[in-house]
Nucleic acid binder design. Structure first.
Lengths: 146, 146
DNA sequence: ACAGAGCATCTCATAACTGAGATATTTGGC
DNA sequence: GCCAAATATCTCAGTTATGAGATGCTCTGT
């Protein structure tokens, strides 16, 4: 029955929006947007990445990734670096300032996220993560044909 | 530990974005945006609602709800009606055309949503709905103090 | 009755994107 | 080697929002 699916979609949307409001408010305190923070987070955990990799990681459009990296470059947090193997592509990498910022604010961010999702206990969070990973992966694959 | 919370937030974001991409593509085929469809859906299921009620239902800012209802009025799908008890407020209500549109496209939409969340079976969808409702409700309440 | 706090909505400037098309490069088949 | 298709990023116009402040109305306490 489709009602079950609709209900899931509604609660997924609301849960995302409600949690995001908290996360966004936390991020905004550091003068960043969600998109910017997503990119910084990716670069912080994985090191320099091609713009296309960042784009996939944080699910932004082609124009969006250019926009976000431009903003981060203006703020001095990220720099573009040429990619020797492919001259169409370029890397984004944290600057020293970007690294320092992330070291400083990441723990605060993690605490804010923990607070925002504290409606579920540890076991429920694990359970929800498993279900959502399955859900997300499947939805991603569905779209690959277009 | 905060890692669990961060992981949950990441998979929640990705799952939402991936599913939304499908839902948005479906809605766009009918010339509507997600916000517009959300408002139409609310009005379709509950009948005429105050703008403030719609705003809460689909989690839009004050400017956003004005914008969305303006668009829907331009398209002839919704009309504003004066609220006799409170002259600051107004109702949004589906027009005949809006009702007809929703009757026509809602089943198609439901099918598209069902496809988008088909990575989980029926029992998992129920399970996820329960967890996400708890998560969302809690996050909403957290923000009420500000 | 009335001041002032509290609300519902609207207005406006601006942000944060999207998506189509442009540009430059690479890759695979012939 | 060469051409066409694929790919990575950028550009640009337009869209969908946000959030602060304005406006007009209602409610509360006195």
């Amino acid at each position: 029955m489709n009602e079950r699916a609709l209900k899931l979609w509604v609660v997924l949307s609301r849960a995302h929006a409600s949690v995001e409001a908290h996360v966004r408010a936390d991020i905004a305190r550091h003068g960043l947007t969600s998109g910017e923070f997503g990119a910084l987070e990716a670069l912080h955990s994985k090191g320099p990445m091609l713009l296309g990799e960042v784009k996939k990681k944080i699910l932004l459009s082609s124009g969006g990734i250019t926009y976000v990296v431009d903003r981060l470059e203006e703020k001095g947090l990220v720099e573009r670096r040429a990619c020797p193997e492919d001259r169409r592509a370029s890397y984004a990498a944290l600057t020293e300032e970007g690294t320092a910022l992330m070291k400083r604010i990441f723990p605060l961010h993690a605490a804010a996220v923990a607070r925002a999702v504290s409606g579920l206990d540890a076991a429920e969070q694990e359970e929800a993560s498993v279900l959502l990973r399955t859900l997300g992966r499947h939805a991603e694959r569905l779209g690959e044909g277009s």
